[in-house]
């Protein structure tokens, strides 16, 4: 028997209540612990780094009610190396500028795939959660099949975080001239 998938519905403006309740102001919900606060345990092996950025709509206005989730391989290219939720993280963007900050380790590539972090974006006005990827401008990206499938250099660059000192910047543009490439995974 096959069944129809449950249709996606927007996460709405209050997704933070459900997914990052302490951030949303529900004091001490779930013991005050926010799920996905840490991508890896602090003793995980690899090059630790920080990725920061903002999330913008078609007019360049910050999308302050967004929630982002991240999923990545570890420094040896394995997903979920020990089961559990290592390699997964979740962020509420901030209420003023819609910025996020992710502390994690640089993933290794897997096969032809260059090192990247998968991102999933939900917010008010997004009917179906948007998938994209964060690649890194100082890594070897030329064999990556996804990047190779994008001809337009502006589109391609929307997937590549730029290194600035000890951190990377990666902005997400939901629409417009700098629109991020989104994926049908």
């Amino acid at each position: 028997m096959t069944r129809f998938q449950s249709a996606s519905q927007t996460a709405g403006p209050y997704v933070h209540i459900g997914c990052t309740p302490n951030f949303a102001g529900l004091e001490n919900m779930y013991g005050g612990h926010e799920l996905g606060a840490e991508m890896f345990s602090s003793d995980a092996v690899g090059a630790w780094m920080t990725v920061t950025g903002g999330d913008f709509d078609g007019d360049g206005i910050p999308v302050t009610d967004a929630m982002l989730e991240f999923w990545q391989a570890d420094a040896s290219g394995r997903y979920a190396p020990h089961g559990g939720s290592e390699g997964w993280g979740r962020r509420a963007v901030d209420a003023e500028e819609a910025r996020y900050k992710l502390r994690t380790i640089l993933p290794a590539g897997l096969g032809c795939e260059a090192p990247h972090i998968k991102v999933w974006i939900v917010a008010r006005g997004i009917n179906l959660g948007l998938h994209t990827r964060i690649y890194f401008d100082d890594q070897d990206n030329w064999q990556d099949p996804l990047l190779a499938a994008i001809d337009d250099p502006v589109r391609k660059s929307s997937l590549i975080a730029t290194r600035d000192g000890d951190h990377y910047n990666f902005d997400i543009h939901l629409q417009g001239d700098y629109e991020t490439v989104f994926l049908n995974v």
Partner: peptide, 20 residues
């Protein structure tokens, strides 16, 4: 709210890998 928060471009399809 979907007017300014919907991508204009088509989603790019890719075969699922280990990470998906």
């Amino acid at each position: 709210s979907s007017r300014l928060r919907s991508p204009n471009q088509k989603l790019l399809s890719l075969p699922p890998g280990q990470g998906e």
